[in-house]
Computed example of a mutant assay.
Amino acid sequence: MSVRGHVAPSRVRETVLAYLALTKPRVIELLLVTAIPAMLLAHRGSVNPLLIFNTLAGGMLAAGGANTLNCVADADIDKKMKRTARRPLARESVPTRNALVFGLTLSVASFAWLWWTTNLLSGVLAVATIAFYVFVYTLLLKRRTSQNVVWGGAAGCMPVMIAWSAVTGTIGWPALVMFAIIFFWTPPHTWALAMRYKEDYQAAGIPMLPAVATERQVTTQILIYTWLTVAATLALSLATGWLYTAVAVVAGVWFLTMAHQLYAGVRRGEPVKPLRLFLQSNNYLAVVFCALALDSAMALPTLFRV
């Protein structure tokens, strides 16, 4: 009896953790980092806390559903990559059918929740995001083109659109600029990681840019997209105050310096550490959007009223 009493909770815990892993919680962090500042900017800091909670809850359901369906579609290649071999479907700790039902349930729940607690536009944007991520990126682009993360990364930009629409019921130009920031940020962020694990992508037959191009070509593209990212952050200054602008400038110089160092190191034929850029790119995005949240909460005057 005592043995069963100890084993059962352990199995329940393992099952719960396996289903949680399907949603890729670390990826969902991007939702939290970008959605709240977008909502604060949309109404200059005076947003109902309940609306923020409802939007984040719906967004997390949508992201969890999309990531779970992505795991279902990518189960075969996840088994071939060291970085993803421990995912639940790769090690068969969750039945594929159950994962599919789980992902679809989360997706439907996200639409219903956002429609009920915010507005129809936010719910529709969530469904469009899931469909784009699963069908366009995962099933169409990922295994066919080295530009997969450029266009597929658009799905990761949608939380700011959903957040903005939840507050305003529309999509304003600042939301489009925030979309552009994340859109341009995604390639250097992802390619830096892929440079470190390019053998994984080659083994799985995924044409991620670092797996099919030279390091010089990859770092050139990283540099271009880093410049575009910083330019987009500065463009958002037209809707913010001095605090955000100051942080965006300093953080932009820091991000560009890292990208240039990686590019220069490759050009000189020196050993490089692309994983450093990957990790620091997360910090860069967090710093910029946290500054946006603080700036918006202060409700400082803007150059152009939103």
Rank of each mutant, 00 (worst) to 15 (best):
G5R: 15
S10P: 02
V12H: 12
E14M: 12
V16R: 00
V16E: 06
Y19C: 09
K24R: 11
E29H: 07
L30D: 04
L30K: 04
L32C: 08
T34A: 13
A35I: 00
P37Q: 12
M39G: 08
L40G: 01
L40F: 13
G45I: 01
S46D: 15
S46L: 12
N48G: 08
P49Q: 00
M60V: 15
A62E: 06
A63Y: 07
D74N: 09
A75H: 14
A75S: 13
I77R: 09
D78C: 10
K79C: 15
K79D: 14
R83Q: 10
T84E: 06
R86P: 08
R87H: 11
S93Q: 14
P95N: 11
V101W: 13
S107P: 12
A112S: 05
L114N: 02
W115C: 15
W116A: 14
L121G: 02
G123T: 04
V127E: 13
A128H: 06
F132D: 02
Y133D: 07
T138D: 00
L139R: 00
L140V: 10
T145F: 00
S146D: 14
S146Y: 12
V150H: 08
W151D: 01
G152T: 01
A154G: 13
A154N: 05
P159N: 08
V160H: 03
I162L: 09
S165I: 01
T170H: 14
A180F: 11
F183V: 04
W185C: 04
P187W: 10
P187G: 12
H189Q: 05
H189V: 02
A192L: 10
A192D: 09
A194C: 07
M195A: 08
M195W: 04
Y197F: 15
D200G: 08
Q202L: 11
I206L: 15
P207H: 11
L209R: 07
T220A: 10
L223W: 12
L223F: 13
L223S: 14
A235D: 00
S237T: 02
T240V: 09
A248K: 05
V250D: 02
V253W: 01
L256H: 12
T257P: 06
T257K: 12
A259R: 08
H260N: 14
L262W: 10
Y263H: 15
A264Y: 12
E270D: 14
E270S: 12
P271Q: 06
V272A: 09
K273I: 02
P274H: 10
L275S: 10
L275Q: 11
L275D: 13
L277A: 05
A286E: 01
C290W: 14
C290T: 14
L292V: 00
A299K: 11
T302Y: 07
F304H: 10
V306D: 10
